[in-house]
């Protein structure tokens, strides 16, 4: 853990409100995005991100500093998203925000050119396939391909070994391709 991060964590432990604000401002967009991607939580992603921050602030005394603060936040966010996802699977509801639970890309105002339409269709197909990708492959691939985390950070965030991360990413890539082929046929 870096010195400035150690100082930040010390302020968080002391209940410093400005430190809380600094952390929320720094990570809110990334956490909302990763929760939406991992759990397909459309409008609920903000509530889950808020829950993540509250859990983190309540548990900051137990943060041991072996990993970076943002990796620790990612771990809490991923667990919160998974819990929500499990709960939703047990009690299914009709989503109001589109079948994938993620952002629906708006059309360009004056009509898209053909190649842009193709690219958008491809992005939407990948998004659908990603939501069908089983856990834990989806989370691992999201953290790698969409969040750009290193293998080490992913291993920290998911509390698994580097070898497991390597294996999951490879399998997730193969499986995603298979799902995309299914989607196209």
């Amino acid at each position: 853990m870096r010195d400035d991060e150690q100082a930040l964590v010390a302020r968080l432990r002391a209940g410093d409100q400005s430190a809380y604000r600094q952390v929320v401002d720094a990570y809110k967009d990334r956490l909302i995005t990763v929760i939406a991607r991992v759990a397909g939580a459309g409008p609920d992603a903000e509530d889950l991100a808020q829950e993540t921050f509250l859990k983190a602030f309540a548990a900051i005394g137990r943060f041991d500093g072996r990993s970076a603060l943002f990796t620790w936040l990612y771990r809490i966010a991923v667990n919160t998203a998974r819990d929500w996802s499990d709960h939703r699977r047990r009690r299914p509801t009709v989503p109001l925000h589109g079948p994938e639970g993620l952002l629906v890309e708006p059309l360009a105002p004056d009509g898209p050119p053909d190649d842009e339409a193709v690219r958008r269709e491809e992005r939407q197909a990948v998004r659908r396939a990603l939501q069908r990708l089983p856990e834990p492959f989806r989370t691992t691939l999201v953290l790698r391909e969409m969040e750009g985390l290193s293998y080490e950070a992913i291993a920290d965030a998911l509390d698994v070994s580097i070898g497991t991360v390597e294996s999951r990413i490879f399998r997730a890539r193969c499986k995603l391709r298979a799902l995309l082929e299914e989607d196209l046929t």
């Binding site: 401002d25 809110k28 909302i32 995005t33 991100a49 491809e122 990948v126 990603l130 691939l141 969409m146």
Partner: peptide
């Protein structure tokens, strides 16, 4: 395609 997925932004007042 995954890297090009739109990111989410917090709504005003989230912090």
């Amino acid at each position: 395609a995954l890297a090009a997925q739109p990111a989410r932004a917090a709504s005003p007042g989230f912090t």
